[in-house]
Design a protein around this nucleic acid. Structure first.
Lengths: 123, 123
DNA sequence: TCAGGATATACACATTTTCGAATGTCATTT
DNA sequence: AAATGACATTCGAAAATGTGTATATCCTGA
């Protein structure tokens, strides 16, 4: 059937159809990050972010890895960014967080990865 | 606000989130086509296609032009295909209709554009 | 084993999307 | 002007999605 592959694609577009999920994927450009980090960065509540991560997990766009208290998420197939970047081109803008990448480590986050960074700065 | 541009992008992804709309956009790769043509090609009912076209129109992806009885649609900004092609790459497949492009003129469609083609073949 | 931190899941409800059926609109032909 | 062809729009019900609140799970440290 001709529509079969359109449905696969539509399913992936559906996962990209949400602002919060786009923001999360943008954060994950720099590699894996813990949930508490996205929480601090995006200002959403924990359960909300967890729900969006679940959606991304269901379509196989992200994977998680537990490390002690924290769970780190990473993008499974980075070539999804080709799609997102093409859309960035289309709307004529750069990824929002890329422009604010300094914020990525400035936000308070209790996870060891972030504390490592802030300790280096000397908090 | 950081989420503002994510919402714009999400809105466009939302338009691409539907199999029928992806199929329509795929048909429009070869230039403008009338509604009856998509009807014949895709096998959907007229109102259904019209609804999907309305969605694409609302986000500015397609424009229409009346010519007598028929209304021809065309893609406003062809660079949207960069996004779709990136997704094609991601799922590792070619556009379905491109593989069936011979069908594009084989289907029966009453519009003058199609009859022009079939007359040339000598029906 | 118990308390607590980090995260996931369940549930409920409002909103949106989907899609069929009916109807409306506009241009053309007679 | 009436009939007809090609499309568009509206309406309504079912399904899916969005999001807040509550609760469960899993790990760690005491």
């Amino acid at each position: 059937m001709i529509t079969e592959m359109y449905e696969i694609q539509a399913g992936l577009f559906k996962a990209l159809m949400h602002p919060a999920r786009l923001a999360i994927l943008d954060i994950l450009r720099q590699g894996e990050e813990c949930v508490c980090h996205m929480e601090a960065l995006l200002g959403y509540r924990q359960a909300y972010i967890s729900q969006q991560l679940m959606t991304l997990r269901k379509v196989g766009l992200v994977e998680d890895r537990r490390d002690g208290w924290n769970i780190f998420y990473r993008v499974t197939r980075p070539d999804i960014y080709a799609v997102i970047d093409a859309m960035n081109e289309f709307v004529g803008q750069k990824p929002a967080l890329a422009a604010h990448s300094t914020r990525l480590r400035e936000e308070k986050c209790p996870c060891p990865k972030c504390n490592l960074a802030t300790e280096a700065v000397g908090n």
